[in-house]
Design a binder for these strands. Structure first.
Lengths: 194, 194
DNA sequence: AAACAGATGTTGTCACTGACTATATTGTTG
DNA sequence: CAACAATATAGTCAGTGACAACATCTGTTT
């Protein structure tokens, strides 16, 4: 059979998958278009047919990352249970994604903040905040959560999750898992004595 | 006088300063040892006398960043006032550094989490957490803060600050300044109604 | 003061990279 | 089947990080 067909057939997807693996295993500096092409068994210029330049590939990678993360967060937000359970569930989802894809998450936010960031990226991040906002407004409706601007409350929660991930990246996952519930509870009850 | 002395005199410091400027203005991808050398007016191989390789320069840069940040945080922690004021002050310091040096902060944490991160980096980050821990234990001593593992409380605060910075990087600084006090207050009072 | 040694800087080179151009092959559609 | 778009190839260019060999400077020791 076709020992090596002229057309790869699925180059774009293969390049993205390969790039994500390299990113996770050897960091962003080790990511080279030419090496990706070699791994895919195509010529060094083939990737340019699917990504105008390296940045375009990174943007596409960041996009897939946000899509997956947003999907998981939306799913976690939709599972039944009281507010506190829901918050812990979302925290687990976010942090487990962040720690399991640390380099990718770095790239995601780095590209999002780039001056030439594509519109889709910022939109997806908005939807991510929406999923947090959802359980906040729901909790406020049932009286389980302090009233006030839900945007600020959601931002506080999202900030804590993202920051926790950044500060614990590189640490052993079990360690982070052990710390997370306590952090979420501090978030829930606040710093002031009750 | 010496039109261009053989010895630059201060190459290491100039390279670091130039690198930080380039990082802030054009991003990490635009950082090239050769360009730094050109800007400093030395040959392309001169930087290797001060930094074994590019990573060593980045590590040194990350180190200076943590030194400055840790210093400012310690100063903020030492200023008098009640707990809530102190917390707001530290939040302002951390976030203003983070937003004013977004690319550098990225680099700082990226290098800290690298498998070959130098020991000094992790030590400095520890001292940074200590400065947060300081006002927490002090607040607990005076009864202004909920008792419990101060490490977990400090981690929650630090996480929220770091995450806030990440989520608001790229936004206008005034916007972040407007949001931060509300976020800190949510952190202080918690999500549960009182 | 002369000699030395170590630090600092230079030139030259290598393999690798991202980007570009021109060309070849394939698949599709009228 | 012929035109056309999509996809891949080969070749090339300037820029890069790393390294090696050599040059110059500076401080110290004798």
């Amino acid at each position: 059979m076709t020992a090596r067909p002229y057309h790869h057939g699925d180059l774009r997807a293969v390049l993205l998958a390969s790039a994500e693996r390299t990113l996770a295993e050897r960091g962003p500096a080790a990511l080279s278009l030419r090496e990706l092409a070699r791994e895919a068994g195509v010529s060094h210029a083939a990737p340019s047919r699917h990504f105008r330049d390296k940045t375009a590939l990174l943007d596409a990678l960041a996009l897939t990352g946000f899509e997956r993360l947003t999907g998981r967060m939306a799913a976690a937000a939709a599972t039944p249970g009281d507010f506190r359970e829901g918050l812990h569930a979302m925290a687990r989802v976010y942090v487990s994604f962040a720690l399991g894809n640390a380099a990718l998450l770095d790239l995601m936010y780095a590209r999002k903040h780039a001056p030439d960031a594509p519109r889709e990226l910022t939109e997806l991040v908005g939807r991510l905040l929406d999923s947090v906002m959802g359980i906040i407004t729901e909790g406020q409706r049932t009286g389980e959560i302090v009233p006030g601007d839900p945007g600020v409350v959601a931002l506080t929660v999202a900030s804590a999750l993202q920051g926790f991930a950044t500060l614990n990246s590189g640490a052993a996952p079990e360690e982070a898992d052990a710390l997370l519930p306590g952090v979420v509870d501090v978030l829930v009850t606040g710093l002031l004595p009750r």
